[in-house]
Amino acid sequence: MEYKVLLTVFVAVFIAELGDKTQLATMLFAADKEVSKLAVFIGASLALIVASGMGVLAGGIISQYISEKHLHYIAGVGFIGIGIWMLLKA
C-alpha cells in the first residue's frame, strides 16, 4: 500500500469535510436524544464510504479518456468557479 497517498487523501478529505454540511447534518442527527449515536456514526460513515467509492470509480473511468494533467486543470477551474460564484452570492 502507498502510505504517502493514503495519508495525503486522508488529510485532504478530512480537512474538506470539517464544517461541511455533511458534518452539520450528522451533528443534528446525533443531537437527538432518542437517536443512537452509534447508528448515526455508522450511517454517516457508510454514506461517506459509498460517496468516496463512487468518486474513485468515476475518477478511474474518466482517467481512461482524459489525461491526469487535463483533469487537474478541469478540477482547478471548477474550484475557482465555485469560489467566484460563492463570493458573488455573498
Rank of each mutant, 00 (worst) to 15 (best):
M1G: 15
M1C: 07
E2I: 04
E2V: 00
K4Y: 07
K4L: 15
V5T: 13
V5W: 07
V5M: 12
L6N: 02
L6Q: 05
T8N: 04
F10I: 05
V13N: 06
V13E: 05
I15K: 05
A16Q: 02
A16N: 03
E17P: 01
G19A: 09
D20A: 06
K21W: 10
T22M: 03
Q23M: 14
A25F: 14
A25I: 07
T26E: 07
T26F: 00
M27L: 14
M27W: 04
F29S: 03
F29D: 12
K33C: 00
K33T: 07
V35Y: 10
S36C: 01
K37N: 11
K37L: 13
K37C: 06
L38C: 07
A39M: 05
V40I: 05
V40K: 00
V40T: 03
F41G: 08
F41D: 07
G43P: 09
A44S: 15
L46N: 12
A47E: 13
L48R: 03
I49Y: 02
I49P: 01
I49G: 00
V50W: 04
A51Q: 05
S52N: 12
G55H: 04
L57P: 01
A58V: 11
G60T: 08
I62W: 01
I62N: 04
S63A: 14
E68K: 07
E68H: 04
K69Y: 10
H70D: 15
H72F: 15
A75M: 12
G76K: 09
G76E: 12
V77Y: 13
V77W: 07
G78H: 09
F79N: 04
I80N: 00
G81K: 11
G81I: 07
G83E: 00
W85I: 09
W85M: 13
M86V: 08
L88Q: 14
L88S: 10
A90R: 15
A90T: 11
A90M: 14
A90G: 03
A90I: 13
A90C: 04
